[in-house]
Amino acid sequence: MTTLCPNCGAEITFRSIGLSVIVCDFCRSTILRSGDVLSIMGTAATVPDTISPLQIGTTGVHNGASFELIGRVRWSWSEGEQIMGGWTEWLALFADGSHGWLAEAMGRYMLTRRIDAVGDPILKAVAWGEPLTPGDGADLAGSSYAITDARPATVVGSDGELPFAAPKGETVFSVDMIDGAGGCASVQKHGDNVSAYVGRYVALSDLQLRNLRKIEGWPPPAWAAA
């Protein structure tokens, strides 16, 4: 669906049916869509440049399902005043209209999807703000994981289409977990809502990626040519 930005009049295109938020490429307004009604929720902060080979418009295939990256949120985490690291979550819109997240952190990639988990103690622990220690075990949706980190994460900036508005400075509490065979999961608390995501570590070379971003000084690898 193509329409005009209610703030600046630039053309904006929703590629998804279900996602409710888009950031205008031109004026960076965060626009909420509700049926045919568009409303402005504020201005999204710019995502600082990173050397990522991914970009909005990159397409790929995972487990036989093709996807396109149509949005991103850049997050950071801090200890005290100091930023300790950052990562990017790319919103992958699958051909069937569902979506997942391709997270890019420390040079590694995880593809996860939101699940409707109920009853696992880890969900309650995150909801109630109980202390969680890296290394502790946690079960989620029938799988066993170990917690790798549990910490607040803050939005740095956002782009494109997203299932939620991500204003700069918005903070969630995020718990990341891995298993012994490449599986990963995370549980996040935003306000009073707790959501769970499960998926796997992936290698970019396994995702049949196209329309990757060029990187100065680095010829693309053979699998990324075309």
Partner: peptide, 25 residues
């Protein structure tokens, strides 16, 4: 295109190239 960031050391003024911008802390 993605590119290394060219910056200057705030202490000694030497040029610094950040080769993995966005990942490097």
């Amino acid at each position: 295109p993605g590119a290394p960031r060219a910056l200057t050391c705030p202490n000694c003024g030497a040029p610094i190239i950040v080769r993995a911008a966005g990942l490097t802390v």
